[in-house]
Amino acid sequence: MNNSLVEYIMHLADNSLIHGHRLSEWCGHGPILEVDIALSNIALDNIGAARSLYEYAAEIEGNGKTEDTYPYFRDVRQFKNSLLLELPNGNFADTIAKCLLFDTYQFYFYTALKNSSDNRLAAIAEKSLKEVTYHLRFSSEWVVRLGDGTDESKQKMQNAIAEHWEYAGELFAPSNIELEMIEQGIAPNIDALKDVWQQKIAETIEEATLSFPLSNEKGWFQSGGKKGIHTEYLGFILADLQYMQKTYPNSEW
């Protein structure tokens, strides 16, 4: 049972870590200073949430494991983040589209996780929800600003949402581990969050004068991340993230 719980915590932590890492790549490259600072702040919140989760996993596993064991010493196939989060940042609209889809998901997910039968996860959810509320406001406002902006910004925002849409479905498709956790009252039923998520996204897209991506008739979406089957991008992220620890194992500063 503990084994499944650790696997589940790892999936949540990996989502936050990889999203945070991607956003941190904007540091020093934001289109304007305020956006640069905002994206770095949001990256920090996500990496902070990942730390709380890895730390919890390390406590359960014991055996000399620490919060650093998981991000630095696992390989691509052991990471269980959703594919959406490892996609390259692309242009600013691409990043904002990814943030809108994920922030909205996290908002409803953490709201539900606050009621987890696992007290520690409930506490992490309570803390993270406050932060995600800011993230969601930031990404939603930018979708509206770009969508209802110039012809060029509108086109880029529309393309960005269309391109990321097919990766969002995986967030709501429970893996075997998630099903087990849902059964035990530890995880919220993510499948049930999809409607309210979609409705909220639709409202934002409408306010941004954009059109809603055509939903795929067969409900097909890109998936694999939760099982450890990733796009080629994750390996490059890990090469960057793990370089120092792989070169000088367990080095400290």
Binding site: L44, N46, G48, R51, K127
Partner: peptide
Amino acid sequence: TPTYSGCP
């Protein structure tokens, strides 16, 4: 109690 999750 930490203020923000990632607060260094």
